[in-house]
Design a protein around this nucleic acid. Structure first.
Lengths: 180, 180
DNA sequence: AAACACTATGCAACAAATTGCATAATTTCA
DNA sequence: TGAAATTATGCAATTTGTTGCATAGTGTTT
């Protein structure tokens, strides 16, 4: 259950509201641990119950009030304990590969469209990563935290480049099969 | 919900029992869609209810009876319809990356052990894939179905090689940070 | 002879994730 | 001026995934 920890990691950086967290997930840590706002709000409730975060309501004029959440010392301790426990291997679930396992039972034309779509997705990802790298990391002096994030980001960049190459390849191979 | 479809894909190849499926998942399609035997048995029940598979009890001497499952024409049709619907992008959940996001809040020594462990995991995967390729695909004449699987397998091989390189790299970079 | 691994199936409880909905105000675009 | 997007929060229902357990016979190892 690393959603709780992913949230704690974000809040270690600065206190945030559920809404902030949801956006931060969409643009940053969520590249490696996807989560919806509903899940985040629910998890925040659990973290508050456990005493790992404390919540403060902030009055706002006009907009609805926001509730910001701060990591408590107990939360920090829990995060440190979690960091010592072995990381689970990532769970892999990819429909696309399942379809590769059944080329003789599927609609190949439709599948090739899906491959193209998947390549677009990886290209979008890659350019997001590159933009983030350029904006926040290139030519800057980085502290330990930032260096860690940069390592993750560079792995992401590398990974996406490979994904793009792989799918290009797969499209060519798959196209060849149809005509045989 | 591609577990149902992953099961149908397997059963398209040949009728299998839940136990067979669980083993097949562990050694083959599960590389891209992991699932436990409990989940498989539950899903088989649902597929039977929907009429996508039919089940036959087979008497065995000594061993407990096995129940083999066969895809029905409705099941095949459902699989074909599913293949036309867009594939979801893979859901990414990787604790390791979350830890990279918090290098200043974690136990770095423990984390480096985890990285080493992760590299072993990818090396094991790679050698599994290579063994499968050698045994079932190299130097063989392949039909469409097998060619699809080979494409998936080769993507897996490529991916694991990259993973190994990436983590090697990350270990070096992370080690460097500690001493600064 | 006892312990363990393998074949074979599945329930029950729980945790996590997804989907759909709901509210309510403000800003921005057409 | 009306519609749509954004900010902000969250409940409820359902599905999916995990963990622990239970049963029961056979074969293999110590």
């Amino acid at each position: 259950m690393a959603l709780a920890e992913a949230i704690l990691v974000c809040l270690t950086e600065r206190p945030m509201s559920g809404y902030d967290l949801a956006k931060y997930f969409d643009a940053s840590i969520g590249f490696f641990w996807r989560s919806s706002h509903q899940q985040i709000y629910r998890e925040l409730g659990k973290l508050r119950e456990k005493g790992y975060v404390s919540s403060q309501e902030v009055e706002q004029d006009g907009k609805p009030n926001r509730i910001t959440h701060t990591v408590t010392p107990e939360g920090r301790a829990a995060l440190y304990e979690w960091s010592k426990r072995p990381s689970r291997h990532p769970s892999i679930k990819d429909e696309m590969f399942v379809k590769f396992y059944a080329l003789d039972s599927i609609d190949m034309e439709a599948f090739e469209d899906q491959l193209t779509n998947r390549m677009e997705y990886h290209k979008t990802r890659l350019s997001q990563y590159l933009r983030i790298k350029e904006r926040f990391y290139d030519g800057k002096t980085l502290n330990l935290n930032q260096q860690g994030k940069l390592i993750a980001l560079e792995m992401g960049i590398d990974g996406e480049r490979q994904n793009i190459r792989q799918i290009e390849d797969a499209i060519i191979k798959t196209g060849g099969l149809e005509r045989s």
